[in-house]
Write a protein that binds this DNA or RNA. Structure first.
Lengths: 350, 350
DNA sequence: TTGTAGGCGTTATCAA
DNA sequence: TTGATAACGCCTACAA
């Protein structure tokens, strides 16, 4: 089935069929309906290779906003962006990646705005959950499609979200904890900031499943680390002294390396468990040395790659995303599968 | 960069450049080198959309051989095949899927042969590891590219393999077991048949890490279930009586549902752990009800989808696979992440 | 050994 | 409101 055959069957020209397919109007209603009927009956859909070939001439400008790379999680996200940019370059896509240097509202605003000023066709972003940012995203989304990743803005008009279900990830951590704890005691949760939803939600998820624990556990109030390994090191060192019945350190976000180092230095890594999120290079080392017991990954590469793919399909091929929430997997890692690099995206597939 | 610009820069015609790109010969060596130099310097690579558009006229016939669907693991593999077939249909690919009705050598041979007789351009298969099959795959691979999935034939001339590193998966199961066991005792491993390498390797992997276990454990000799849930049910029921210090049932392959049912019926699911491989619909139920503690998935969908993508790129676009081993992830599941469907392939991405 | 030309299916432009 | 025509970049006969 080609657009030519449809045109022949309908007794019109290709141009008219094209106008119907893309809802461009300027077609007599009765002809429109006739063509739509034929398309439905034949199950015709445009040849993507041909569309892509033709569209690649036009060009598509996408922008992506990336939090500071001091959190090395975003290094893998960046790889996803770059890999996608590389792949879609031949389809006329240019991706402008803007790296923030600090995690403040103002900079986010200004950067995003300067990107938009360049005349973007679509935007990919992740940001702090504040009412101001929600408004701003709504404002952007009026002009161009916006895809959020890692951190969602559910009550905004963004096109869709790519990232983890953080509550469920926290529940999964709690599930692992319940399975592994051998003695009663206290659990110390660490987060970066109270206003990072991802982190507080993970703690909420963990808390929700603790009643299933076969031994008595107590979840201490979450301690902030300001996304700093130094702070986390000190926090853990202090609590190791202060809280004598500590059985587990749960890093819901921020400073996992500092926390692990502190636990290792204390010489009590065998006796106290440690759980965290994300699979950073240092985390792999800590898994192998037995300091960290479990970590839960969230496919960072895909969080960079997929938004680009989604926006390409939406803008260039006119295909709306199939889902509003593209949840990445809850990827449990421990010593023996710390090194396995699963296949995260069929990048080369045309 | 287009083939036209390269031709202009080299002072030759498009045709000559095309011959160089695809190593078709019939080009004067000095001209060949000149063109190759320009291609290298400009970083030119052919536009995939244009290639695809042109090639889709020719058509590509692929074949896939699928073990009996009585093992519902292969239902997900089949979905992968179908999804890929669907996607690549517009690029002129037709995929013939042959489902075996029993797992015997003769049938595999005859089916594969009849497929080849139809004039295939590439073949995807999974089979029992016997010397005969290795010879046969070598024979096939002389004619057309062959991709193995799930079960590899490392000493054959197949193009590449898509599937799990079974030893590492077994080690991961052992790792989980060591983390979770609370009392000493015996572990009962179940396998389908001794000559299914995947299963015995998993047990080998598990055995290798047991010395790290903080409590005393003993690994019993593996028991065969002939890939039958009925047999597995009886085996487990018997051993639950016979082996009074049983702490864990490890289903390395075959009959996991029967085994779980037996454990549930015995009323001792709380006291005895159960580990298995693959995430079948019934396994999810058993995870949620607490009968099965952990299962290790291996991305079955991808094991169907990826081989098709690989063969398309190889045959239609002339791109050799980047790796010989495409290891799927070691996908740990327990109650709280049993339901999560990660994103397994960017299928719609052009 | 090299060059030429036609077409893959779609889309954009222009003329009717 | 429609139809005709010219690309998009590559591949492949066929001609030279």
């Amino acid at each position: 089935m080609t657009i030519n055959e449809i045109a022949r069957m309908a007794g019109v020209s290709r141009g008219t069929v094209d106008r119907v397919i893309h809802n461009r109007g300027k077609v007599k209603p009765e002809i429109q309906q006739r063509i739509e009927k034929i398309i439905r009956e034949t199950g015709f859909s445009p040849n993507l290779a041909a569309s892509a070939l033709k569209r690649s001439a036009n060009g598509l400008r996408l922008g992506a906003i990336l939090p500071p790379l001091t959190n090395s999680f975003y290094v893998d996200v960046l790889k996803g962006f770059q890999s996608a940019a590389d792949h879609y370059a031949q389809y006329g896509v240019t991706l402008s990646i803007v790296q923030l240097t600090e995690l403040t509202l103002d900079e986010q605003y200004c950067t995003a705005w300067s990107l938009l000023d360049q005349g973007l066709d679509g935007l990919i972003l992740s940001a702090l959950n504040t009412p101001f940012m929600t408004d701003y995203i709504n404002h952007l989304a009026d002009e161009i499609p916006v895809v959020t990743y890692n951190t969602d803005f559910t009550n905004s008009s963004r096109l869709c979200f790519v990232g983890q279900d953080h509550i469920q990830a926290g529940r999964t951590a709690g599930n692992l904890l319940c399975n592994s704890l051998r003695r009663p005691g206290s659990i110390l949760p660490l987060i970066s900031y109270e206003n990072i939803l991802a982190h507080t939600r993970r703690v909420d998820g963990l808390r929700a499943v603790l009643p299933r624990c076969p031994v008595d556990v107590r979840l201490l109030p979450a301690v902030e680390t300001a996304e700093s390994d130094e702070v986390a090191y000190d926090v853990v060192t202090n609590w190791l002294h202060k809280q004598t019945d500590l059985t587990c350190i749960y890093v819901a976000g921020g400073g996992q390396i500092g926390a692990a180092d502190a636990l290792a230095d204390s010489g009590r890594a065998d006796e106290i468990m440690m759980f965290c999120h994300d699979l950073l290079p240092k985390t792999i080392e800590h898994l192998k040395s037995g300091v960290v017991d479990y970590t839960i990954g969230q496919q960072p590469f895909l969080q960079g790659y997929l938004p680009v793919a989604i926006l390409y399909e939406y803008l260039a091929l006119g295909q709306k995303p199939a889902k509003e929430f593209y949840y990445t997997s809850i990827d449990i890692r421990l010593r023996e599968n710390a090194d396995v690099n699963g296949i995260s995206a069929i990048t080369g597939a045309l």
